[in-house]
Amino acid sequence: MRGDELLDLFEDLDEELIEEAAEATILQAPVYKKRRTLLIACVCALLALSFPMVLLFSALFLEDAPVTNAGKDEEASNGIEESEPGEGWSEDGQHSDNGYISGENSFYPPEESVAPVDPMPSVPLPDEQTITLTLQALSSVSLQIKEGVVCAVQGENENGKALLADLELEGLSYPQALNTLFSAMMKKGEFVSSRLLTLSLVSENMDELTKVEKEILEQGARTLEQNAESNGNVVKIVVTPAV
């Protein structure tokens, strides 16, 4: 025999051997099993370690990232041309400083959207002090606040009573209650037509309030203003003593 004829010697190989070899795939030798198991364990460990890290980083850098003009500048420097007001931002050309567009034909935000509720002001209210505030708009509402929490509400006019009928403010913190009231008023369309709106938070016992308490009221008012602005409404809230 010469050349490739030697291969003919294997031609009549036992059928079992031929079928066994045809069916063989990955050999399950213990050493390869061990290596594979080790590799899988390493990958799982890496994934398990990286998952909380990703969560931590996203919590640190993404959730708290403020919307600033710096961000807009960065976009512009990345090739996105910054437009000027009245040059195509919206049909009526209106915009706010934080980059949102307002107006009847504005693209966003929806006016009914509920503003995010900020936590309580950092300075706690005095334990025993009860503050009565009146939010004066088309719907006039009084809130009694004790230890930073709304303990009683009252509609000062028909609109106010109607508004309160749909809301449960008692038990909410003071800023939460203000936000809820404001959102409800927006839904009722009280503020739709006005771009700049002045609300009065009237305290009947303003003269008796300490400096810290007044500061807290101001803080609540500013929080509400900021939330309103982020929803495309320019609101100015003035805290005044009751007349």
Binding site: L7, F10, L13, D14, E16, L17, I18, E20, A21, A24, L27, A29
Partner: peptide, 17 residues
Amino acid sequence: IKKLPSEQRIIFVRRYW
């Protein structure tokens, strides 16, 4: 070939058959 260990047997058949 039948007497070879499994791994060796399969490789041998795959190569020469």
